[in-house]
Nucleic acid binder design. Structure first.
Lengths: 210, 210
DNA sequence: GTCTATACGGTGATAGAC
DNA sequence: GTCTATCACCGTATAGAC
């Protein structure tokens, strides 16, 4: 088998490398990450990384694709599901989204590190998103429909989506700093649990008709 | 004069270096930034950077301190001012905060790049914040007071602060990506103007009694 | 203070034994 | 497929002329 092709089947070693690389790239970014550190974290040899993924940049791309695809898909589709009120959908979305990020703590850092500056990561990110086949419009149409039905107050759906995502993701950046200042001494896990409710309530109240 | 001491007086050259370094570190992060690039951006020679700031890490620390101190102070104090209702305070805070970040587009990236991972930047950030002498508790006390007076609904003040900051800052990360998806073809400046109102309204509705 | 030229160390990548 | 040893390059940092 030719290593590092587009096949989704991975050998055990390849998997180890990818998982280690996710964490290290997430912590250090593309530039900060060292092949040696990834090798150590995978419990393997540096040369193996090059055997499976010819170059650092190549390894990065592989990791990036995987990370990105696991980041967005599942949760976003919840907005299209039948049988839930809009408020319920928001609550479910927020809970799942925060859970998702908690399970992959390197994700926000990873995405963030690589969508700074107009040229570098952005094009890649946009292409990636398109490749997932995901339709960001589901959320948009739901919100618009609800506003027209008069169930929620008039609000730009794009701003609403941006708000929800901001509230979910931001706390993960600099989590230590935030804890230190706003929630000193509090257990981080507990904070996240409370955060799910706090965000849901906040959003729902913000769009509720007065 | 001994270069790179803690004096706040800077020579013209020193200023050029600091300003260039802000932008480059903001775009590339500590690891991604190259002394050569900073020198080019400052229209100076690489050796001069070392003359004024002995090492890259030293230059970084100088930039970091400056950036951080310009980031937080002024805006936060608005929350303590007399003669405004809580809603007005929030609106003023949001507007000023978004304006501030717009004027220093490298700031969010800069802060973000360097508060990933528990040890690295976090301690520095926390120390820095303490050094500004700023009291994050102003916001906290205001919110608590309002909740007790029954002017707003019961809400954890810490969560409220976190929400407001999230809504203000997050859009600046990956701004290109967000524009591409949520506001295609729209002028970025105009988006920010609308964003100020959208965030203010969102927050105010979210805390208003129903 | 500002420049050019150079030393030095570290990192990505490869060769080759097993 | 996995390892050790080594190369070639690039970026920080310094030396030294002006």
């Amino acid at each position: 088998m030719i290593p590092s092709d587009d096949s989704v089947i991975h050998t055990v070693t390849e998997r180890k490398i990818l998982e280690a690389a996710k964490r290290v790239f997430g912590r250090k970014g593309l530039d900060g990450a060292r092949m040696q550190e990834i090798a150590d974290e995978a419990g393997l040899n540096k040369a193996l990384l090059h055997y499976y993924f010819r170059s650092k940049d190549n390894l990065f791309r592989a990791v990036f694709r995987e990370v990105f695809q696991s980041f967005f898909p599942a949760v976003f589709e919840m907005m299209g599901e039948e049988g839930y009120s809009f408020e319920e959908k928001i609550r479910r979305f927020v809970h799942s989204y925060i859970d998702l990020i908690r399970q992959h703590p390197y994700l926000p850092g990873f995405i963030l590190h690589h969508m700074q500056g107009p040229e570098e990561g952005t094009v890649r990110v946009v292409e990636m998103f398109r490749a997932t086949g995901l339709d960001p419009g589901v959320f948009y149409r739901e919100a618009k429909k609800e506003a027209e039905k008069g169930n929620i107050r008039a609000i730009d759906p794009a701003q609403l989506i941006l708000n929800i995502i901001s509230l979910c993701i931001f706390p993960f950046f600099g989590a230590p700093v935030i804890s230190a200042f706003l929630f000193p001494g509090q257990d981080y896990e507990r904070f996240l649990e409370e955060r799910k409710e706090a965000v849901s309530d906040f959003v729902i109240h913000a769009i509720r008709k007065t």
